[in-house]
């Protein structure tokens, strides 16, 4: 099939690079994929880069510094479709835990010369700075979803990815509910599907790395967890882990922690 290759860029912001690695992890599909896709900017894979504009830009990482704010705005201008990829880009990531603390205290605890570090007050999801067209969630992002997204863009349709609660996918898969059968706290009922229910498959509760599902009611889950005996602090910590700074989880956390921020 002769068609113009899709120009794809991958940009890293405040992140661990795990999401970009998921692209390189598509070992079985990568060769076929590169027949249809040209990675014009993807430093994790190649130092050769080409200028924009890009058909699709994947943004990994949260926006944590003034420079990053500037850069992501430029990427936005150069990109037809901008995709926030992973928990950092979509919800601020684990590093957003600092958003509940004073920035100066955090800087001092980490760096010998904190005055050299220019950081934003908050570690922010990309959508707080520029318009995001699609979100691919997870820590790391799911390889299958990423590939499905690219395939759908390639055929020229509006990408469709289910955004319902993980419970649906978990139960479709045939997992037994860990909350009901084992009394393990699980964020699955309020977290977006897409990971294939990895943690519950191995008998663990969902840690919430995909962030809130489309119509999530974390406040109802929080009251149930308290009702069955969890302490407010522990419930807050559960929600805080990966995507605590997402609007919906943040609200619940703040209520549990007594209105801080």
């Amino acid at each position: 099939m002769m068609r113009r290759k899709l120009k794809v860029a991958v940009f890293k912001f405040a992140s661990c690079s795990g999401c970009q690695l998921q692209i390189l992890n598509m070992e079985d599909e990568l060769l076929t994929l590169t027949d249809a896709v040209e990675f014009t900017y993807f430093l994790e894979a190649s130092r050769a880069t080409a200028p924009g504009p890009y058909d699709v830009a994947f943004i990994e990482g949260s926006i944590s510094t003034p420079e990053q704010e500037e850069l992501v705005r430029r990427v936005r201008e150069e990109s037809r479709i901008l995709v926030a990829m992973g928990a950092c880009a979509t919800a601020g990531g684990i590093q957003a835990l600092r958003n509940w603390l004073r920035l100066d205290d955090v800087k001092r605890a980490v760096y010998p010369n904190p005055e050299w570090v220019k950081a934003l007050e908050h570690s922010k999801p990309v959508a707080e700075v520029v318009k995001v067209d699609y979100e691919l969630r997870g820590c790391p992002v799911s390889k299958e979803r990423l590939l499905s997204f690219i395939k759908q863009v390639l055929v020229g349709r509006k990408p469709y990815l289910r955004r319902e609660a993980l419970c649906m996918d978990c139960r479709r898969k045939g997992n037994v509910c860990v909350m009901v059968a084992k009394g393990i706290p699980c964020l699955g009922p309020v977290v977006q599907e897409g990971c294939g229910a990895i943690c519950p498959t191995f008998g663990r509760g969902c840690y919430g790395c995909f962030g809130p599902s489309i119509d999530a009611r974390p406040e109802a889950l929080a009251s149930r967890l308290r009702e069955v005996g969890m302490k407010d602090r522990d419930v807050a910590r559960l929600f805080k882990g990966f995507t605590g700074w997402s609007e919906k989880f943040r609200k619940v956390i703040n209520e549990l922690e007594g209105g801080a921020r």
Binding site: K151, C167, M168, R171
Partner: peptide, 23 residues
Amino acid sequence: CFGCAGCNMVCPTCFCFDVIDEP
């Protein structure tokens, strides 16, 4: 209610479905 649809999934008669085309 969490709206998780767990009841739909375990219900022996709930028949709703989604059809997905995967290119």
